[in-house]
Amino acid sequence: MTTLIQYLQYLVNGITLGSIYALIALGYTMVYGILKFINFAHGDILMVGAYTGLLTYTALLGESTNPVWMLTAFFIAMLVSMAFCAALGMFIERVAYKPLRNASRLAPLLSAIGVSFILSNGAAWIFGAQSRRFPYPFDNTPIVIAGLSITPHQILTVTVSVIMMVVLTLFVNKSRMGKAMRATSIDQATSELMGIDVNKIISMTFAIGSALAAVGGILSSFDFRVYASMGTMTGLKAFVAAVIGGIGNIQGAMLGGLILGVLESIGAPLLGIPSALRDTIAFAALIIILLVKPDGILGKNEREKV
């Protein structure tokens, strides 16, 4: 009985972690969907998002301990961070990727790795090597229901992620620009014939992906702290999640993120893997999926009808 509760607990923790992976995975997958390019600087955007969120939050909060203002300040900080990262994402695309669009496929990839180094080294230079704690904007005492403990932070993470994913899904399926984004990822040349400005769509894709990464960065920094290289491992895992779900597929990124989070959380105790080696689970899952279903769970392997 206790073990059942324990595994349910791992499941809850896994869903929390997974929803953060999902938010970040969306940025990889949307950019890949349109440009067929892995934006390796995406992980560092989440780091920038966490710092921006933390700095805005502490500045807004000042000495206040008013619980209502704490939460309000937190959400304002999140919006500021989303806006800042959206602008940064568009800027990076404009200066580092767009000029290389007709170059060899390797060129933008190398450029992305360069951008990644610039961002993480820049942050280390500005903020130092010390990691910082992102204080909870509320009392994080767990709520215990039938032996299962759920923290307000977990509730916040899952709620915010679900809202973001629902809004994104509605945007992509119902709105004019969202449909144009899907059309562009299917066939750029034909989208242009429809009057769609593909450059604008690409900018928008980077903006949305980066804003979601900012949220992921902030939500992950309660558990993992804020530091210059925080985006590397989380970014890599979110990328793995995107591949597991089927890169290029938005639902796939959400699903892949959740699966990976749950696998990591349950897999370690289930297989008796020491928690220091927990990261191996993600990469083992990646290898397995590449062997069994290279296009990912929701990836399509059928070719277009001509």
């Binding site: 004019r176 449909k179 144009a180 899907r182 059309a183 299917i186 034909t190 014939l193 769609i196 277009e304």
Partner: peptide, 25 residues
């Protein structure tokens, strides 16, 4: 307006969504 060779429909989108794209502007 150009109807390209080989049609180039947005295969993963519905007929209605394809028409929406034609009226993008």
């Amino acid at each position: 307006a150009l109807v390209p060779e080989g049609r180039h429909v947005f295969a993963d989108m519905t007929v209605e969504e394809n028409l929406d794209m034609g009226a993008f502007l």
